[in-house]
Design a protein around this nucleic acid. Structure first.
Length: 299
DNA sequence: AAATGGTCCAACCGCGCACTA
DNA sequence: GTAGTGCGCGGTTGGACCATT
């Protein structure tokens, strides 16, 4: 026995929305609201669409003040900072960008931002190399001629962290996840089980506090360290930034010697948290260094 | 001009969570 | 306590469009 379908698949229209359908949906919601029930909405309006499809259409395109395309550098930075910190939590990232939808940001990241940022840093010998050279104003860092395929360059930059900075950064991560992660933020970030964050209901989390991302956030060589130190760098950046044990392997070079402990779970957790604090905190990423590292200003 | 390959994005799908009876 | 239901999310896909050969 499987899950009951949300609608009668045989009697719903799929594919692109027509202007008439858009008009119907928009007009109805503007007058009556969603009524708290998306599943019932299409029947009320007389649309042969799945309720989920209606919801998606409204949220992504018909809702007032939606922006499409034309991402600014500031928006790029926010997306990057949050992605580094929390991963592919697009809805959370979208919440920091007024007028942007999670779908929009997700598409932007997958199709453009990721390539722009990491195309230039792929290891030598990859097929992407040629196409990366076409990426206009990106600066390619060429390795020494004797670097073998599979070797990364330049040498990993090891961020120097002071204890106070680490505490500050850890607090920042906690605040971020606490505010946006909800009760299930740990699902995607097993390392964070170790982080003592109080449990709250979602309704409490989305308070009226200002944007998480300050234009004045400070930068270190965090992103550089993460980028160059990753063992699995030939894979997509998603894997590089994910927070599970396997994917974190290879980051050792980024951390102080006393932070590395992959032998036991305790050590591992400590290692993971240190890794988080020293390399994955948006608050530790400054605009200037970030720009230099990723050549964002020329994007 | 046609064929081919790559890019982009709107939309769909399936799953997990929250809520409710 | 639990089964049913709707919502929201992230991942994936299909196809239109564009660039290159």
């Amino acid at each position: 026995m499987g899950r009951a379908p949300c609608c009668d698949k045989a009697n719903v229209k799929k594919g692109p929305w027509s202007p008439e359908e858009d008009a119907k949906l928009k007009s109805y919601i503007e007058q009556h609201g969603t009524g708290g029930n998306w599943i019932a909405l299409p029947q009320k309006i007389g649309l042969k669409r799945c309720g989920k499809s209606c919801r998606l259409r409204w949220l992504n395109y018909l809702r007032p003040n939606i922006k499409h395309g034309g991402f600014s550098e500031e928006e790029d930075r926010i997306i990057l900072s949050l992605y580094v910190s929390i991963g592919s939590r697009w809805s959370i990232i979208a919440a920091q960008l007024p007028g942007r939808t999670d779908n929009d940001i997700k598409n932007y990241w997958n199709t453009r931002l990721k390539k722009k940022l990491f195309g230039k840093q792929r290891k030598m010998g990859s097929q992407k190399q040629d196409s990366n050279k076409k990426e206009g104003n990106q600066t390619l860092v060429m390795p020494p001629s004797d670097v073998s395929v599979g070797t990364y360059w330049p040498e990993p930059a090891i961020p120097v962290q002071h204890a106070a900075d680490q505490n500050e950064q850890m607090d920042s991560i906690k605040r971020l996840l606490f505010k946006y992660g909800g009760t299930n933020y740990k699902t995607n970030n097993p390392l964070l089980d170790h982080v003592p964050v109080p449990c709250m209901q979602s309704s409490q989390i989305f308070d009226a506090s200002p944007s998480l991302i300050s234009p004045q956030i400070e930068l270190t060589s965090l992103s550089e360290g993460v980028m160059h130190g990753l063992d699995s760098y030939s894979k997509e950046i998603d894997e590089s930034f994910c927070f599970n044990q396997i994917k974190l392997e290879g980051l050792e070079g980024l951390l102080g010697s006393n932070s590395i402990g992959l032998g036991t779970s305790d050590q591992y957790m400590r290692w993971g948290c240190d890794a988080m604090s020293s390399t994955m905190n948006p608050a530790s990423m400054g605009i200037q260094g970030f720009d230099e590292q990723f050549n964002l200003s020329g994007m």
